[in-house]
Nucleic acid binder design. Structure first.
Lengths: 147, 147
DNA sequence: CCCCTAACGTTAGACGGCTAATCATTAGCC
DNA sequence: GGCTAATGATTAGCCGTCTAACGTTAGGGG
């Protein structure tokens, strides 16, 4: 009964647990890796931009930014031209995590897909993407109808 | 780069979002559905038993139990024979949610796998299970070595 | 028989996540 | 050009989750 649900939940949990364990070695919390990676890609993004990129709400980014600022990983800089905007910039300490972080995430990916052929990996990615697409379509549908 | 990670994260998020939306109609929060389902299966389980069954820590269940008690969904009953144990029992209000809950979860499962053949569904479940197995093996390995 | 340890539940506090409400600044319209 | 609407960030408060510390009850060993 609802085997699919259980499988999905278990996968989420185990993935989360592994990621948390790896991140702890870098003194990072779950999710902060995504912020660091996004800023490494393009520094100075605003909370709103990051939220959109990471598919998360703005308040979530704001809270994380506050903690990461306290931890010395990022800095808040107000935009000169538009005083409403806040630019989040990596500090040197934050930048120093970028490469070990990328290496760790890549290692996780490899370890988790051990025993899967390339074909199976591609298949898994494809199937999950389609399910995600279904989920988003469903959310959009409900959103419109206000149901 | 780390495409697998992104796919997995996106899948988790979308699934979570859909589940949250459905649960809201029943005035339930994410995760509470699992507690209700577990108690429907076998009423009077202890926080520790539930935690093990749901692959979650005991404090998580305790907090949820407190809120669900306040919401009138479950009751705390101390075990007669062993005063250390607490038995969580569904109230009538809680029990009334069991069936609509099961129906909702089944509906989610069907909507999310729309467009997938039976073979593909089986394949997805199999692949995710194997990845989850890898993740758990990795966690166990780290746990032993204390690394 | 009493103490000591093991087994449980609970509390405390941190974190990511969300929704709703608030505040500041910019831009647009009459 | 000044009032209003839209755009951003922030705050407040809730929930699930985790780890660490605490209190209590059973049970076992000397």
């Amino acid at each position: 009964m609802t085997e699919f649900t259980e499988t999905y939940t278990a996968a989420s949990k185990s993935f989360r647990a592994v990621t948390t364990a790896v991140l702890r070695r870098l003194d990072l919390h779950l999710g902060q890796n995504l912020v660091v990676a996004a800023l490494a890609e393009r520094d100075g993004q605003t909370p709103g931009e990051l939220a959109a990129a990471l598919d998360v709400t703005t308040p979530t980014i704001v809270k994380m930014a506050t903690r990461m600022t306290a931890a010395g990983l990022v800095m808040r800089v107000r935009d000169d031209k538009d005083q409403r905007l806040v630019r989040l910039r990596l500090t040197d300490a934050g930048r120093s995590l970028v490469e070990p972080l990328a290496a760790s995430m890549k290692e996780i990916e490899e370890r988790l897909t051990t025993g899967l052929t390339d074909t199976e990996r591609a298949s898994l990615t494809d199937l999950m993407t389609r399910v995600t697409g279904n989920a988003r379509a469903l959310l959009a549908e409900w959103d419109e109808s206000g149901d």
